[in-house]
Simulated scan of single mutants.
Amino acid sequence: MIFFNCFEKDIWELEDLFRTFDAELIDADLLSKLEKLLNDIDAEKWNKDNILTYLINKIRKDESKKCTISDYIKRYENTFEQWDKNSNEMKQERDYAPSLSKAYQRLSKQEISEYDKYELAFELSKSIDF
């Protein structure tokens, strides 16, 4: 408890500390005790949520721990769904980026005709959401 009281005024450092925890160290027992300690030092709800979601996210897909932390997963289900959705969108953007790079390289070549440049730009514009 004394250790946690040291972070009462600067909870950001406590958050950073828990970001470095390996997944092997995280389990339901740690999460419940951590939540209790965060409540004891009167940490803001959003600070508690940040710390807990970060730790839970590290182990939520681990089949051996999934059952014991199911209550936590349910509590932050919307957050994890949004993170998964954003992660998939970012992956799609990264997968699409090489074709954009190739298109840019083709457009910047001087020997390509104006007509081909317009055609290429038109094809690229089809994949852009306005």
Rank of each mutant, 00 (worst) to 15 (best):
S101M: 06
E119C: 08
E44G: 06
K36V: 08
I26C: 02
L100M: 13
L30G: 02
K45F: 14
D71Y: 12
D22F: 00
N78G: 03
S125Y: 06
L25N: 07
F7T: 10
I112W: 02
K58V: 06
Q105M: 13
I51G: 00
I59F: 01
I56S: 01
N39F: 13
A28H: 10
K102F: 07
W83M: 15
D29E: 11
I41P: 00
P98G: 07
K48L: 02
F130I: 09
Y118K: 14
Y115I: 12
A121L: 11
E15H: 15
E119G: 02
I73V: 15
I128Q: 03
D95I: 11
I112T: 15
A103M: 10
D129I: 15
N39Y: 11
S70I: 10
K102Q: 14
I26E: 00
Y115H: 11
A23T: 10
D29K: 12
R75M: 08
L120Q: 04
L37I: 05
E24G: 03
L107Q: 01
I2T: 12
E119Y: 06
D62H: 04
S99K: 04
A43M: 07
F7I: 08
I41A: 03
F80D: 00
E13H: 14
K33A: 04
E63I: 06
N78R: 07
N86Y: 05
K109W: 01
D42T: 07
C6Q: 12
S32R: 08
D10G: 05
S125Q: 09
I69D: 00
P98H: 08
S32L: 07
D49C: 03
D71P: 01
N57F: 04
E44A: 15
W12D: 12
W83C: 03
S70T: 13
A23E: 06
D84I: 05
K61Y: 13
A43L: 08
E114N: 09
D42F: 10
T68S: 07
S32I: 14
A28C: 08
K66Y: 01
D116H: 09
A121W: 00
R60D: 02
K58G: 03
T53I: 13
